[in-house]
Nucleic acid binder design. Structure first.
Length: 508
DNA sequence: TTCCGACAGTGGGGTCGCAAT
DNA sequence: ATTGCGACCCCACTATCGGAA
């Protein structure tokens, strides 16, 4: 099969807004693809690369060669070159990668270049990723969607699952099982504004667990072999030796556990997220890093214990197995209650302890791997500030032509100006985007660069955020975490906005 | 007919490793 | 030594479609 076939299908998928039409386009192509090309086609059309990462990004795709006229590149040819790009390492590798990118793109037509560069940047923008591709695989293979989903849960890589379905139908899908050593897509949580709201949503008693501000891990143990995976299924075993040691010390030798790793201070309060993040990312001198910032591990779910797969069991049964298998200090603290008042009290206590919040879990729900299932609901406290818009950046994609990303500043009574604390594009409706674009252009003091418009600091906007963190990027040495717009405050002028002192008081 | 679950898109700050300068 | 880039850690929110109610 040729790359142009995929590029054409992708364009057709993008052109139809209806999901069912997207599925039809994708399934039609899957019906034509050969068995040895199915993985590549499914990967590309769901926005992924079989190589996962190439070492090429936005900058590596600047200055592409002119397209050619005849489309001749096959999927195998493209995939082979991408593998060669990925394989480059050591001094000179960056230049070698660029040379290979040039060679690859010089062999492509315009539409192919557009498709492939979007794919490599991770911005396919065709309105279809895994979710739609699952439906397409089901349609093309004749297997029920639920079977495809379940196989994906256990295998964690849709192209492999899709290829199996196209080749062997339902039978092939049923052959996928939970395998110790191969990570499963972790279950995710929805969110709610309060414990009361979360309990209401679940409609009965639930388990409230500490939400630790660390890094999600999935740990597999088979005998003395222990592997630790992140949420995106990357192997971080070497960076977090504390985890393997803790799990190896358990009596059970066959385990798949779900939990969180976090750096705690000697007094038990959490370090800022940056500390945990740094520990998980750093590969050099793990022993030294461990002495400075030791990691603690807490588990909250068990997917397999001693030969038994637990994924389909109710949450409370899985937790019972967890509690039987682990010592209490390795289990995430929790409270089971249906009472909103005691739930709120528990939440307040957790937050006082410096933690992120709680996760409210239905007692009955199975482990819905890879989905934002309704069974888990996270609750976090929310801060708000009234800040001043200092500038705005032009948006992209569906926000093209709209001023989108806001630069936010707090009032600085000492300096008489404003101190930038970060940016946000979240919480804006289409209506608000249109309004603010017009308003900002009226307040414009001129462009700072091609994509940023500096405005007179007059508009006050109410911003919600999760906390304040240390920053080396911004002049005040602080930045807001997860800032989002609540509403504009036309009733306030800039000299009534919150000050940097107010923000500084929120620093941990 | 209306409601709501699931998905995709639109980007945010911080950290590390590594190649290029 | 510094800088720029890529990859990944954390992530919130809105619009839309289509099945559920």
């Amino acid at each position: 099969m040729l790359l142009i076939d995929l590029a054409r299908t992708s364009a057709a998928v993008a052109a139809d807004s209806a999901r069912l039409a997207k599925v039809r386009h994708l399934a039609e192509l899957l019906g034509r693809v050969g068995p040895d090309e199915a993985e590549i086609a499914i990967a590309y059309l769901s926005g992924e690369l079989p190589q996962r990462q190439l070492g090429i990004g936005w900058a590596g795709l600047r200055d592409l060669p002119d397209p050619r006229l005849a489309a001749t590149a096959t999927l195998h040819q493209v995939d082979g070159l991408l593998s060669r790009i990925r394989a480059q390492s050591g001094p000179g590798s960056q230049n070698a990668r660029k040379a290979l990118v040039t060679e690859l793109f010089a062999a492509l037509t315009g539409p192919e270049q557009t498709f492939l560069s979007r794919l490599i940047r991770g911005e396919l923008r065709q309105g279809a990723l895994d979710g739609v591709m699952i439906e397409a695989v089901a349609k093309a293979s004749g297997a029920p969607t639920a079977e495809v989903r379940r196989a994906l849960t256990l295998r964690g890589w849709l192209p492999a699952v899709g290829a199996a379905a196209l080749g062997g139908g339902v039978e092939a899908l049923r052959a996928f099982r939970l395998e110790v050593g191969r990570p499963v897509a972790p279950m995710l949580a929805q969110s709610a504004p309060s414990v009361t709201a979360a309990l209401e949503k679940l409609g009965g008693p639930a388990a409230l667990e500490w939400k630790l501000d660390g890094v999600r891990i999935q740990v597999h143990r088979s005998g003395d072999e222990v592997s630790v995976f992140t949420r995106t299924l990357d192997d971080i075993t070497a960076q977090v030796p504390e985890v393997a040691e803790a799990v190896r010390a358990l009596p059970s030798r066959d385990l798949v556990l779900d939990g969180e790793v976090i750096a705690l201070r000697p007094d038990g309060r959490p370090e800022p997220f940056q500390v945990t993040s740094g520990r998980v990312a750093s590969r050099a001198d793990v022993a030294g890093a461990r002495r400075t910032s030791p990691l603690s591990v807490f588990f909250f779910d068990a997917l397999r214990v001693d030969g038994a797969d637990l994924l389909d069991l109710p949450g409370e049964e899985r937790h019972a197995a967890l509690a039987r298998t682990l010592p209490p200090e390795l289990v995430t603290p929790r409270l089971v209650t249906g009472d909103a008042a005691s739930g709120e009290a528990f939440f307040a206590e957790v937050v006082r302890g410096g933690h992120e919040g709680v996760v409210v879990k239905a007692l009955q729900s199975p482990y819905a791997a890879g989905r934002r299932g309704a069974g888990w609901i996270k609750v976090k406290p929310r801060h708000t500030l009234d800040l001043v818009v200092l500038a705005a950046e032009w948006g992209s994609g569906r926000r093209e032509g709209r001023l989108s990303n806001l630069h936010l500043g707090a009032r600085d009574p000492a300096g008489g100006g404003f101190v930038m604390l970060g940016k946000t594009f979240k919480g804006l409706t289409d209506e608000l985007l249109a309004w603010q674009t017009e308003r900002f252009l009226a307040l414009a003091e001129g462009p700072a660069d091609d994509w940023t418009v500096v405005v007179r600091p007059e508009l006050v906007v109410e911003i919600a955020f999760d906390g304040v963190q240390r920053s080396s990027r911004y002049p005040g040495g602080m930045a807001l975490r997860f800032a989002r717009v609540i509403r504009y405050r036309p009733d306030k002028t800039a000299d009534q906005a919150d000050t940097v002192e107010t923000v500084r008081a929120l620093m941990p």
